[in-house]
Amino acid sequence: MNRVLEVRDLRISFPGADGHRFHPVDGVTFDLIRGETLALVGESGSGKSLTSLALLRLIPPPGRIDAGSVIRLGETDVLALEGEALRRIRGRRIGMIFQDPMTSLNPVFTVGDQIAEGVRAHLPVSRSEARDRARALLQEVGIPDPAGRLKAYPHQLSGGMRQRVMIAIALAAEPEILVADEPTTALDVTVQAQILEVLDQLRRSRGMAVLLITHDLGIVAGRADRVAVMYAGQIVEEAPTAELFARPSHPYTQGLFASVPRITGPRTRLIPIGGTVPPPTAWPSGCRFRPRCPKAFAKSELAPELMPVGPDHRMRCWLAETGGTDG
């Protein structure tokens, strides 16, 4: 197994109004394998974006990563890094693209400047070499007339073009992992597909691992190799994509699928999940989905661990013990 990233029991805490620290991310564990796409799926407030920021130690203060958490990039212990050593993994080992391409580019510099900046932040190349690389990167992310676009300012480009530029910047220092936090949420549907296609091509051509953070199960199908579903600061189900879509097992995952309309098959009523996501300041005791779960039973009063329900398929639900999760 060619593991490029190892996250163990990641806990992120913020100080609450009552003086106690609360944990929006509370014990997240996953691996990322070279060349794969892992989708981290969850609603807003599930902790998925904080998880991605933690990989680069970008949790805004007063938030912090609690002791006992582990983030390993190959042999590098990310949580032990400081200062210049930390800067050198940002962009170099892990590249990151953000949700809103309209605001993620500096408005007063040209696209070429900004890509070259990403190159020169990490690689010892001259200004003109950096410019050549910038042009090659624009070509690689599928921007027509890359030499001309180098001189464009962000406001002269469409949203889809800007997101391609963001991807080019994230790839400037040739990272082995690309974290894409809701990369297509701000784009319209046809452009979404193009951007996802670009990401997929780059993953294959560069052998990168991609961590795709999204709330949209639709973009996961066909793009991700594996899916981890997050709820209330924890991963509640994890499986290869085909397996998850064929046999969603955690009641929360089942609820997600039941609330998404389907194009094929018989028309059925969409069933919303009752209630709302609890705030991170008040996670329910026991199983965190218990207050909204149609299948909650006595044992749900205790907090479940991730338990196997099939090959490479695990969920955080006591029903895994009985195997009775269908229906």
Binding site: G91, P107, E117
Partner: peptide, 19 residues
């Protein structure tokens, strides 16, 4: 977002401040 993006991509403190 662009300041956070610059930090996420390893821009040095000096670059973030001046640029």
């Amino acid at each position: 977002a662009f300041v956070q993006a610059a930090e996420a991509l390893g821009a040095s403190r000096r670059r973030v401040i001046f640029r």
